[in-house]
Design a protein around this nucleic acid. Structure first.
Length: 727
DNA sequence: CGAAAGGCTCTTTTT
DNA sequence: GAGCCTTTCG
C-alpha cells in the first residue's frame, strides 16, 4: 500500500519529515488525524522503525482507539508494540513500572475530581479552616493549576504573597500528605510525578529517551507546562518530536493548557520545520467563511488561510426564538424536516451547547417528539453513585490504604457506623500509628485488644464485622477471577439488597451490571492484574470515549467535547451574551478570546449546514433572564446569513410568536394516544422498544406512564406525547 | 445513628 | 433546580 498516495503536498511533507522537531499547524478539517496515522505508518512501513520506538500521544482514549483502528489497516500487526494513548494513561503506565524509585507504590489508585474534592475538604477540616471562606473547589483548582505548572507543595509554601496563597499552600501540603497516605495519585500527579521521576532519576529517563526515537503529540495547543516538560524530557536525546495543533482551537486554558507551548515551539526548537495544513476537506466554503469572520477578531493568533475545493454550500442560519423551550422545538422540528426530506439522517446531526445544564431542555424536546438522540455525558456513567460505590469497594480491595474509598463505603449499606464512631476510629488508628484498614482488621480479630478500646462492645462488633468482610474480600481477590469477585462482593457486602431497595433500584442495579459488563473485558487476565487494569481503565475514561457512532441518533454534546468531531448538520444553541461568551469571561479579554475560539470550534464541526440559535428569554439557575444575541453573531457578514440579515421570528421579541411556533412544531407531533394503560400492560415504544407498564397516573389533562423497557430501563413518559402502542 | 426536611450557593468547560 | 450541607427529631 502506498502510504503517500492521496495526500496533498503539505500533508505529504508532514508525513515525510521524520527527522528533528516538526510543528504542524493544522486548521479544522485539514486531515490532521490522517496525517498523524499516516506518519506513524510511514515510520514503520517505509523507514523500518520498530513500533517499539514510537510514541503517539492523543487527547482522548477514543482518539487513541481510532488511530489504532486505522493503523491496523495501514500497518497490520504492528500496533500492539506501539505506545499510543493519552498523557495520563501513558504516565500511569510509566509510574506503575518505575515509580517505586521515588516512593510510588505500583498499586497506587488514581483519584478523580470527586475524590480530590473529598481530600481537600478533609485537609481544610484538619487545618481548622472554614470551607465557607476557603471554597474547596477554588482551592482544588489552585492546587491543580500549580501541579500543571510543575509547582510542588514545597514550592507553594516557601514564599507566599498573600493570605490566600499562604492558606492554599498549607492545604496543598496537607492534601498531598493525605494522598500519599492513601497511596493515591490525582490526575495532575500522574503527569507531574512522572516529570519529577525523570528529573531525579536520569537513568530511568535515559531508558525512555532511548526507547522513544520518535514522538508525536496531537492537540498540542491544549497541553500544559508539565506536559510540555515531559515531552521535552523524552525527546531530548533524538529530538524527533512532532507536535500537531491549532492555536485557534485552544479551549482548555481553564485546565491550565498553555497556548504558549505552541506559540513558543519555534523558539524552543529553532530548527523546527513548520508545516501548515490549510486545505479543508470538511466544510462548505460558506461555513469556512462564517468561521473565519468569527475567529479573525482575536488578537492572539497565528494567521492561517483556510481554503477548500468543496462547494459554496448553503447560507448560515441564525435563528432567534422566544425561550429555550422554543429553541429546542425549533431544533427538533428542523432536524425532523431534514430527515423527512431525505437531506440527512439523525446520525448526521448534532446539537452543541456551552454548558451541560442546557442539555436538559433539548433532551426533553427530543423525548417529547420521539426523535432518537444520544447524550454525551449527561450524568456520566462513572459518576453515578452506584458505580462509584462499587468501584470504591474494588479500589479498596486493590489498595487497602485508599482512605477516600474506605470512608465512602464504610457505612454503605448502613452498618450503624456514623460520624461519631468514625471519629473515634480514626483517632484510635492514628494513636496506634496504623491505617484505618488495619484498625478494622485488628478489631476483626477474636480478642480485638479488648479493654483498651475506646468503643463499646456493640461498636467493636460492628466495626469488626466490616473489617472481616474486607479481609475476606482481599483474600478472595488473590485467587478469584474478577467477575466472581465482583458478584461476590456486591452480595456479601449487602450492597445488592441495599441498592435494590432504592426507589429506582432496578435501574441502579442495571447500571452496576453494566459496570460488570465492562469488567468482562478483563476476564482473561490473572486475578490481581485484572483488577488493576480494570480500575485503571475506569479511572481514565472520558465521556466522549464511549460515544458510539453506529446508531442512527442525533448527538447532544458540549462544545468542548465536540472538538475533533464532525457532523453534516450542526445546531449550536444558546449563542447569547452570557452563555457564549459565558458570563464568567465578559470581563477578561483573554477568556473572551477563548470563548471565541470555542465558537469557532463549534462552527467548524459542520460539513454542510450550520444553525446558530439564541433565545430571547432563558431560565438560568432558577430565574428567568433576558439575553442579547452573542457578539460573535455580529461578526458574521450579512451576505453569509440566510435571509440576508440576522433573522428573527417575526413577533418573537414580543413573545407572542410562541403559539405560532408551537403550532408549527405540533405538525410533527404524534397523535395523542387514546389507549388507557394499566400496570402490567405490554407496550411498544418507537425508540425504547417493548416494555411493561409499571404504573399509569393521571396528571393534569394527561397521564404519566412509568414503563420498564428491556435494555434501556425504566422511563417516565407522558401518555399524550409518547408513541406508545399496546401489544 | 440516620432519615427527613430545610437552607444555602451556584455552574462553564474535563483528562 | 439541584446538589450539598446543616439541623432536627424519632
Amino acid at each position: 500500500m502506498d502510504i503517500l498516495a492521496k495526500l496533498n503536498p503539505a500533508q505529504k511533507e508532514a508525513v515525510e519529515t521524520i527527522e528533528g522537531p516538526v510543528l504542524i499547524l493544522a486548521g479544522p478539517g485539514s486531515g490532521k488525524t490522517r496525517v498523524i496515522t499516516h506518519r506513524v505508518a510511514y515510520l514503520m512501513n517505509v523507514c523500518g522503525i520498530s513500533p517499539h520506538h514510537i510514541m503517539a500521544v492523543t487527547f482522548t482514549n477514543k482518539a487513541a482507539r481510532e488511530m489504532e483502528e486505522r493503523l491496523s489497516e495501514l500497518a497490520p500487526g504492528s500496533v500492539q508494540s506501539l505506545t499510543l494513548g493519552t498523557f495520563h494513561a501513558i504516565c500511569a503506565r510509566i509510574l506503575r513500572r518505575d515509580g517505586k524509585a521515588c516512593g510510588i507504590e505500583p498499586g497506587f489508585v488514581i483519584y478523580d475530581d470527586d475524590d480530590q474534592l473529598d481530600l481537600v475538604k478533609r485537609a481544610l477540616q484538619e487545618l481548622n479552616l472554614d470551607p465557607k471562606k476557603f471554597v474547596p473547589r477554588a482551592i482544588l483548582s489552585v492546587i491543580s493549576s500549580n501541579k500543571s505548572n510543575m509547582l510542588t507543595s514545597q514550592d507553594c509554601t516557601r514564599s507566599t504573597r498573600s493570605y490566600f496563597e499562604e492558606v492554599t499552600g498549607r492545604v496543598y501540603e496537607r492534601y498531598q500528605q493525605l494522598l500519599t497516605a492513601s497511596q493515591a495519585l490525582d490526575f495532575d500527579d500522574l503527569l507531574m510525578r512522572t516529570v519529577l521521576l525523570f528529573r531525579e532519576h536520569p537513568e530511568i529517563l535515559k531508558k525512555y529517551q532511548e526507547r522513544y526515537i520518535h514522538l508525536m503529540v496531537d492537540e498540542f495547543q491544549d497541553t500544559n507546562l508539565t506536559q510540555y516538560e515531559l515531552v521535552k524530557q523524552m525527546a531530548d536525546k533524538y529530538k524527533n518530536i512532532c507536535v500537531v495543533g491549532d492555536p485557534d482551537q485552544s479551549i482548555y486554558s481553564w485546565r491550565s493548557a498553555d497556548l504558549r507551548n505552541i506559540l513558543n515551539f519555534e523558539k524552543d526548537y529553532p530548527l523546527a520545520r513548520v508545516i501548515y495544513l490549510e486545505q479543508n476537506y470538511r466544510s462548505t466554503q460558506r461555513i469556512l467563511d462564517t468561521a473565519a469572520h468569527v475567529i479573525k477578531a482575536n488578537r492572539q493568533r497565528k494567521q492561517k488561510e483556510l481554503w477548500t475545493e468543496n462547494e459554496i454550500g448553503e447560507l448560515t442560519n441564525i435563528i432567534e426564538t422566544y425561550t429555550e423551550q422554543e429553541e429546542a422545538q425549533y431544533v427538533v422540528k428542523e432536524i425532523e424536516r431534514l430527515v423527512e426530506s431525505g437531506e440527512a439522517n439523525y446520525r448526521d446531526c448534532a446539537v452543541m451547547y456551552r454548558t451541560n445544564a442546557q442539555s436538559r431542555v433539548i433532551e426533553e424536546a427530543f423525548v417529547r417528539y420521539g426523535l432518537p438522540y444520544k447524550l454525551v455525558a449527561g450524568t456520566r456513567f462513572y459518576e453515578r453513585r452506584e458505580i462509584k460505590d462499587v468501584i470504591a469497594y474494588l479500589r479498596l480491595i486493590q489498595n487497602p490504604c485508599d482512605s477516600v474509598s474506605l470512608l465512602r463505603i464504610i457505612n454503605i449499606p448502613n452498618r450503624g457506623i456514623g460520624q461519631q464512631t468514625l471519629n473515634l476510629l480514626s483517632k484510635w488508628a492514628s494513636e496506634q500509628g496504623i491505617s484505618l484498614f488495619d484498625a478494622l482488621k485488628k478489631l476483626a480479630e477474636p480478642d480485638g485488644g479488648t479493654g483498651l478500646l475506646p468503643f463499646n462492645s456493640r461498636t467493636v462488633k460492628t466495626l469488626g464485622a466490616f473489617g472481616s468482610l474486607l479481609k475476606d474480600l482481599v483474600l478472595r481477590s488473590r485467587e478469584t477471577n474478577l467477575l466472581d469477585l465482583f458478584d461476590h462482593l456486591t452480595v456479601a457486602s449487602g450492597y445488592k439488597d441495599y441498592i435494590l431497595a432504592d426507589e429506582d433500584g432496578d435501574e441502579r442495579w442495571d447500571n452496576v451490571q453494566e459496570l460488570r459488563t465492562v469488567a468482562e473485558t478483563y476476564r482473561e487476565l490473572v486475578p490481581p492484574e485484572a483488577l488493576t487494569t480494570f480500575l485503571e481503565s475506569v479511572a481514565l475514561v472520558s465521556s466522549v470515549d464511549d460515544l458510539d457512532e453506529s446508531n442512527n441518533k442525533v448527538t447532544l454534546i458540549t462544545l468542548h467535547q465536540a472538538k475533533g468531531l464532525e457532523f453534516s448538520n450542526v445546531f449550536m444553541v444558546g449563542v447569547e451574551e452570557g452563555l457564549l461568551p459565558h458570563i464568567r469571561s465578559l470581563e477578561d479579554p483573554f477568556q473572551m478570546e477563548e470563548e471565541r475560539r470555542l465558537c469557532y470550534v463549534g462552527i467548524t464541526r459542520a460539513r454542510r449546514r450550520i444553525y446558530l440559535t439564541h433565545a430571547f428569554r432563558r431560565t438560568l439557575m432558577g430565574h428567568s433572564t433576558v439575553n442579547k444575541a452573542s457578539r460573535f453573531l455580529q461578526d458574521i457578514p450579512k451576505n453569509l446569513v440566510a435571509g440576508g440579515e440576522i433573522w428573527q421570528a417575526a413577533e418573537s421579541k414580543l413573545g407572542s410568536d410562541y403559539r405560532t411556533m408551537s403550532a408549527q412544531v405540533s405538525d410533527i407531533k404524534p397523535k395523542p394516544s387514546t389507549v388507557a394503560l394499566k400496570a402490567g400492560d405490554r407496550v411498544r415504544h418507537a425508540i425504547f422498544g417493548e416494555g411493561v407498564v409499571v404504573s399509569c397516573t393521571p396528571k393534569a389533562d394527561d397521564s404519566e406512564v412509568v414503563a420498564a423497557f428491556g435494555g434501556v430501563g425504566v422511563k417516565k413518559l407522558l401518555l399524550s406525547f409518547a408513541k406508545l402502542e399496546k401489544v
